[in-house]
């Protein structure tokens, strides 16, 4: 009996670092953020003005919607690119190629996002590598600027999130018994019906985890967007940054933070409902 209790207590001790981590670095700041968002900038009395400001200033709603739509779009695009890659790596390739490709996907994440973004700039700028190669090949005769477009933001975001989409999908495809695919073919299924009815439903949880992660990362991105986006790149995170750093308006910034958090939670919840996925199952 004593042994059991001791063992149980020991296990609890192991949890303490994580609980501290979550409690101090996640829960507490968010509680503080939540309280701040309902306080006046001066005096700290209760107010809803910070939220009202968001809905009254069309600038913020516009930027917010833009950020949300971009995040959703890039998440879908990332899924579209990652799924075939994950499928090929797990189900088609031999061991050696599998390891090689996996490495190719992981390797870019050994450098920071900042450096990744700078690398993209070297590639995409008017006097950059791609423009040069196109001219060398004779496809164009003058420099072309690829930077500072919305599409550059999308490319950058997709790139920075591919890993977080591919790995969970690979993980779930790994558990798919190949004989299920064969059985589908055997029963008259073709490529698309097998994809639709067998493979995608099986990979559903992985797709969900990947999409949630990528969506959150996109929504909260700052570096890639500002560096690659140029003059039209205002992202909601930058608006939050401005509130805290430029305007010294913690309360407004907190309200924006709470709005962003609430939106992402609700959005993820709705998507889970629509796709009939269970978060515990997905995770």
């Amino acid at each position: 009996m004593w042994k059991r209790i001791k063992r149980a207590r020991g296990l609890w001790l192991l949890l303490i670092p994580m609980l501290l981590w979550i409690g101090l670095l996640f829960v507490l700041p968010h509680v503080k953020l939540f309280i701040l968002s309902f306080q006046e900038r001066r005096g700290g009395a209760f107010t809803l003005d910070n939220y009202a400001a968001f809905f009254h200033k069309s600038l913020y709603t516009k930027v917010f919607i833009r950020t949300a739509l971009f995040s959703i779009f890039t998440t879908l695009l990332t899924l579209l690119i990652s799924f075939p890659a994950a499928f090929i790596i797990t189900k088609v390739l031999g061991k050696k190629m599998k390891a090689l490709l996996l490495l190719a996907i992981v390797l870019p994440y050994w450098v920071s996002e900042l450096i990744q973004a700078f690398t993209w700039m070297v590639l995409f700028r008017e006097t950059g590598v791609i423009s040069y190669v196109l001219q060398y090949l004779g496809i164009t005769h003058h420099n072309i600027e690829f930077l500072y477009h919305n599409s550059t933001i999308v490319v950058g975001l997709v790139y920075t999130s591919i890993l977080f989409m591919t790995i969970p999908i690979m993980n779930s495809l790994d558990t798919l018994d190949d004989s299920l695919i064969e059985a589908s073919y055997d029963l008259g299924g073709d490529f698309w019906s097998t994809m639709r009815e067998i493979i995608i439903p099986h990979a559903g949880p992985g797709i969900m985890v990947g999409s949630i992660m990528v969506f959150m990362l996109n929504l909260g991105n700052y570096v890639t967007v500002t560096l690659l986006g140029g003059k039209n790149s205002l992202w909601f995170t930058e608006a939050i940054y401005n509130q805290f750093i430029v305007r010294f308006n913690q309360n407004q910034g907190s309200a924006f933070g709470v709005i962003l958090l609430t939106f992402s939670v609700i959005f993820v919840w709705i998507v889970l409902k629509i796709t009939k996925q269970d978060l515990t199952e997905a995770m």
Binding site: D177, A183, L187
Partner: peptide, 26 residues
């Protein structure tokens, strides 16, 4: 048609959907 060693039933479908799978393809 083949009955697989590990059966390879489709876990994402119920019994009836499993059985109608081939018919639906046809």
């Amino acid at each position: 048609n083949m009955v697989f060693q590990r059966l390879a039933l489709f876990p994402m479908m119920n019994v009836l959907e499993n059985v109608t799978f081939g018919l639906r393809r046809r």
